[in-house]
Amino acid sequence: MTLYGYARVSTTDQDLSLQEVALRQAGCQVIRAEKKTGTQREGRTELELLLQFLRPGDTLVITRIDRLARSLKDLQDLVHELRVKGVSLRATEQPVDTSTAAGKAFLDMLGVFAEFETNLRRERQIEGIAAAKARGVYTGRKAKIDPEEVRRLHTEERLSPTAIARRLGIARSSVYRFLPGAGQA
């Protein structure tokens, strides 16, 4: 039986070192880590690589359940995949060990709370944005595309929409939004 560790934080400015230390202390020789959101599985390449690598009798070790998944469905899907492979799941900071009945029950309860926390955070964010908009201080994120630059490149430099898109690193469809009649034959 081999112990494999998985560490995750949500943003690039967060630090993985505490999780990695805890996983090494738990006996993990191989640790995969990434800085990706836990609200979805898509794009979590290190987790996918680890899931492909695990073999029957192995144990996937995490520090806390919310490092693995923030939605109950994702958590249950992951646990099911592990079970089918004959792999158990263990958390270093929580009494979770899917090789025991009590560990499985506690896992489900923690999954519910992880999803609840994510939903509360999302609700607070929506409320905060609505309040900022009401005060007139929320303007959203800055535009990535300068419409005047698109028009200038088209009229002054005589660039095609494809060339403009390449130069600005944007989609050609975005160029057409700022060039009335450019996409019509």
Score class of each variant (00 low, 15 high):
L23F: 11
L107A: 15
D97C: 01
K85A: 15
T37W: 12
Q40W: 08
G181K: 11
S173V: 07
L168C: 06
V150E: 01
E123R: 14
G27S: 02
V30L: 12
S173Y: 10
T139E: 13
R67F: 07
T100C: 03
T92E: 02
S71Q: 03
G27N: 05
A101K: 09
I129D: 02
R167C: 00
L18F: 08
A22K: 15
T118R: 15
E81Q: 14
K36I: 14
S173H: 12
L110C: 11
R41P: 10
I145H: 04
K36G: 09
D58F: 04
R24V: 05
R64W: 07
A131S: 00
L51M: 15
K36E: 13
T92H: 01
D146P: 03
E127R: 06
Q184V: 14
A91L: 04
T59A: 13
G103A: 06
V112N: 02
A69G: 13
G169L: 04
S173A: 08
Q94G: 14
K142S: 09
K36Q: 15
A7W: 03
T92G: 01
I65D: 03
T37E: 14
R177T: 01
D15K: 09
T59I: 11
A105C: 11
E48T: 14
Q40S: 11
L49V: 10
V87T: 01
D58L: 01
E157I: 07
A165R: 11
S173D: 11
R122H: 11
E81S: 15
F113M: 15
L3N: 13
L3V: 04
Q52A: 13
D13I: 11
K142L: 01
A102K: 12
E149D: 05
V84E: 15
L110P: 13
V112A: 01
A130F: 07
E34Q: 10
T59K: 09
K104S: 09
T59R: 14
A182F: 08
G111V: 08
K133H: 12
L60Y: 00
A132S: 12
A114L: 02
R177M: 01
A114P: 06
A182R: 08
R151E: 04
R70D: 05
R44L: 07
T37K: 09
N119P: 04
D13N: 15
K104V: 13
K36R: 15
A33G: 05
I145R: 02
G86N: 07
C28L: 06
D97S: 03
A131G: 02
G183R: 08
D15S: 12
T162W: 07
D13C: 13
L54F: 05
E46T: 06
G128P: 00
G169W: 07
G43Q: 07
L3K: 14
L159C: 10
T92R: 00
L153I: 04
L16V: 01
T63I: 06
D13W: 11
R124S: 10
